[in-house]
Design a protein around this nucleic acid. Structure first.
Length: 462
RNA sequence: UCCCGGGUAGCUCAGCUGGCAGAGCGGAUGGCUGUUAACCAUCUUGUCGGGGGUUCGAAUCCCUCCCCGGGAGCCA
């Protein structure tokens, strides 16, 4: 007989049927006449209540059924007379597949701190919290593809290993097959990377954007969804060294189209999670209080406030609040400024657009005022920046001049400049940090708790 | 990387004006009950983060290193 998932049982219409269920024991309550077991199989937030009557042969095996043990159970589904669950399985047979020594099994019936669970990363998906996080993460990942596929964006696979070191974002991890104990010497004490695997220095990608641009400039609308790597020494609840990024890129599009896409995207994802992860969100609402179905519902409809950088600076200048960092046109907005805009002034997501060109990347399109670029950031309450995007500079002369001003060497960028030489066209895109989205929607305080195997400075266990 | 706050039993934490290392939870055993993080009784648990120093004596004071958390910077 095939096993059935608890998720399907909860969905209903199986009362009276003989079923086989496999899973891990969460808790057990024993008495003389009857025992109760809460069983989880990861398919859903809910546990299945197993009822083991003392006359059942399974009753003698209860000793091995401690918290954490894996079992295969046969029984008849009944309507539950008790509170807290609709169904329960009246057990006729239990096969203990794997015991879990209660003296050493680290998960208790009680709740654990998120910090402790990080130390047992291989077992934490068995908890309510992490089961919920990873189910929401899965629904979000599926929704990302649905959103773009429904709009005829093509999923493109940009490289993980790259030779491009001028993508603008932080420090890079070097990828090498050289013997690190005997590095070939180059000039003035450096390493000779011409002897390395690729014949030149290679890195883990920090972004697929530049590659996505050339794919957009032939396929039209594309998106990437894959890992990115940053070697920055960032120790915060919002940064990972390895994270997943979504980067749509649209040909024949401007910054207005870009903002529209970003807003539609967030709306879509929130509505999908609200519809498909009701129990998970209800769980987060109850135990972490940083998210709610109601808030998700609002987020999936409410239009985002749009404000120019220049007006945002004016708004901050009017603020009664004392800021630690100065507010002045030309300086980048600090976390406290962004938070003031999202949490106090507009009380919701805000898109800030048209930033000073001197604080933004070389590829962003210069506006007619000659001092701002068509760049936009989507800011969310509490989490801060979740999306950074721009219209790309499609004019060859303007781009070349900008690269010179910012001292970016042209030689490795000829292919990028070619896109402006041959059939150039307006195009725009953005990058969204997937974990920050999961973090925002689940309300998890630390980004290390929304990815199965977090990588950060000094952290690469599991 | 910088600024704060921490590291004591398997977990959460108290003890910190230097003087016998504690509680709750968990776990084990027994009892009881269609139970819901069940309940009652008994029992169980230590490299006080590592190293060095001050002292008759250090979990407690000093130095140093490691790790964790919060905030900042960098960014998504």
């Amino acid at each position: 007989m095939d096993r059935i998932r608890i998720k399907q049982i909860i969905a209903g219409a199986r009362i009276g049927q003989l079923l086989v269920v496999c899973g891990w024991i969460r808790s057990k309550r024993e008495s003389k006449g009857v025992a109760f077991i809460a069983l989880s199989d990861g398919s859903t937030q809910d546990t299945l209540q197993l009822v083991v009557p003392s006359e059942s042969a399974a009753f003698n095996q209860l000793h091995a059924c401690s918290t954490g043990a894996a079992v295969r159970v046969t029984g008849t589904l009944r309507e539950s007379p008790g509170k807290g669950q609709k169904y329960e399985l009246e057990v006729s047979g239990i096969e203990v597949l794997g015991t879990a020594d209660p003296e050493t099994y680290p998960l208790q019936k009680k709740g654990h701190s998120l910090e402790f669970l990080r130390d047992i990363g291989h077992l934490r998906p068995r908890t309510n919290t992490f089961g919920a996080v990873f189910r929401v993460r899965n629904v979000l990942a599926g929704a990302v593809h649905n959103f773009f596929q429904e709009r005829d964006f093509m999923w493109v696979h940009t490289p993980v290993i790259t030779s491009s070191d001028c993508e603008g974002a932080g420090d890079l991890f070097t990828v090498t097959s050289l013997d690190l104990d005997r590095l070939p010497a180059g000039s003035n004490g450096s390493t000779d990377f011409s002897r390395d695997f690729f014949g030149k220095r290679a890195y883990l990608t920090v972004s697929g954007q530049l590659e996505a641009e050339f794919l957009a400039m032939s396929l039209g609308d594309v998106y990437t969804f894959g890992p990115a790597f940053r070697a920055e020494n960032s120790n915060t609840s919002r940064h990972l060294s390895e994270f997943w990024m979504i980067e749509p890129e649209m040909a024949f599009a401007d910054i207005i189209d870009d903002m529209k896409l970003a807003e539609d995207f967030i709306h879509y994802l929130c509505s999908k999670v609200a519809a498909e992860c009701e129990t998970e969100i209800a769980f987060f609402e109850k135990f972490y209080k940083n998210t709610s179905l109601k808030a998700l519902g609002t987020l999936s409809e409410k239009p985002f406030v749009r404000i120019s950088y220049t007006d945002a600076v004016k708004e901050l200048g009017r603020a009664k609040k004392k800021f630690e960092y100065p507010v002045e046109w030309g300086l980048d907005l600090q976390s406290e400024h962004e938070r003031y805009l999202t949490d106090t002034v507009f009380r919701g997501p805000v898109i800030v657009v048209d930033y000073p060109r001197d604080i933004k990347a070389f590829y962003m399109r210069q506006n007619p005022d000659n001092r701002t670029v068509a760049a936009m950031d989507v800011l969310l309450p509490k989490v801060g920046e979740i999306i950074g995007g721009s219209q790309r500079e499609e004019r060859l002369d303007v781009l070349e001049q900008r690269m010179e001003e910012m001292e970016i060497p042209h030689e490795h960028m000829q292919w990028y400049l070619d896109l402006r030489r041959y059939g150039s066209a307006p195009h725009a895109g953005f990058g969204l940090g997937f974990e920050r989205l999961v973090q925002y929607i689940t309300g998890m305080p630390n980004i290390r708790d929304v990815i199965p195997c977090p990588r950060a400075p000094q952290l690469i266990r599991f």
